[in-house]
Simulated assay, not measured.
Amino acid sequence: MNSVLDDIERYLSWQRSSAGPFNERLKLRLREAIEARKAKVLRDRNSVANLGFKLKGRADAPRTYVAPVTRKKIVPVTPPKTAQAPFKPEPVLDDASYNDILKIIENMTLVMERSPSAFASMGEEDIRQHFLVQLNGQFEGAASGETFNFTGKTDILIRVEGRNIFIAECKFWSGPKAFTETIDQLLGYLSWRDTKAAVIIFSRNKDFSSVLKTIEETADAHPHKKRGPTKEGDSRLRYIFGNPADHNREVFLTIKAFNVPTTHRT
């Protein structure tokens, strides 16, 4: 009987010498298959993370200050939920809406130029309010009549579900150092997925051409600037910046300078 048990134990030991390495290789293959599946799921989810976030124009929008558009509604689109781990795609602002916003802001400056006495004594907040009136006159949110809001003293933004999908910093020109700080402040507001931003500069300097030259030189020297500028007008520049949190993540940054009238130029 003992000899039979000894034979069985010997045969099992032989099998262990073969089964052991096989089991270890099997573990590695299973882990590789699981990691590959996980990577594919993440790629599939990321493919729908940057969903277009369309603005809906107002049908009753006034045509006094801006080119005719149809008032659009912000409608975030999300993919259907699945039984897998929760994943919530983040909305982003689509390129067409971004360009529409910039066009409306630019058209508002024509009003300033044509009616200088009405804007000569206004400060940053007062001028910003005029932009907000025009923007909210042309666009509406999915849940309320106003899409564009502001925080602090200088921001114009679209906020959805607690995060910003468009943000602009409005500042009076006070030199290259303050301009660089404004860009830094704006980039600091952006999350990893935010790709649309603008810096709006109000200048009351006498030599506006010199201000524009300094703006371009300062933006070109910024450490996060990657490409540009593309000149989209006499005082509008389009850059590609890197997100400070991930320099490979690119941000469209438009810089628009306005020559705001005043009775006393410096």
Rank of each mutant, 00 (worst) to 15 (best):
A67K: 07
K88Y: 11
P62H: 03
K171V: 04
G123I: 08
R227Q: 14
A36E: 14
L212R: 03
V75Y: 06
K206I: 07
P176K: 03
A39Q: 13
K27R: 15
K153D: 15
A197T: 00
K153C: 07
T230K: 12
S3I: 10
D94S: 06
L253W: 01
I255F: 02
K54Q: 12
T230E: 11
K38Y: 11
L190W: 00
N164G: 03
I165L: 14
S121Y: 08
D7M: 11
R236W: 03
S47W: 05
N2Y: 09
A36L: 13
R37V: 02
F202H: 03
N46K: 09
R58P: 00
Y65Q: 02
I165V: 15
F241D: 00
R71W: 08
E125H: 10
P76Q: 07
R63V: 10
A118Q: 08
V133G: 02
T230P: 01
E35T: 07
R63F: 08
P244R: 02
W173M: 02
S115T: 09
S191C: 06
G145T: 03
V211L: 09
L253M: 13
K153M: 09
S174Q: 15
L157N: 06
K226R: 12
R31A: 14
T64I: 15
K206Y: 10
Q84C: 10
K256R: 11
M1D: 09
E161H: 11
I200S: 01
G20K: 12
I8T: 07
S210K: 11
R204K: 14
R265H: 09
N99E: 09
F179L: 09
A142I: 09
F179T: 00
D126V: 08
A96L: 12
Q129V: 08
P261G: 05
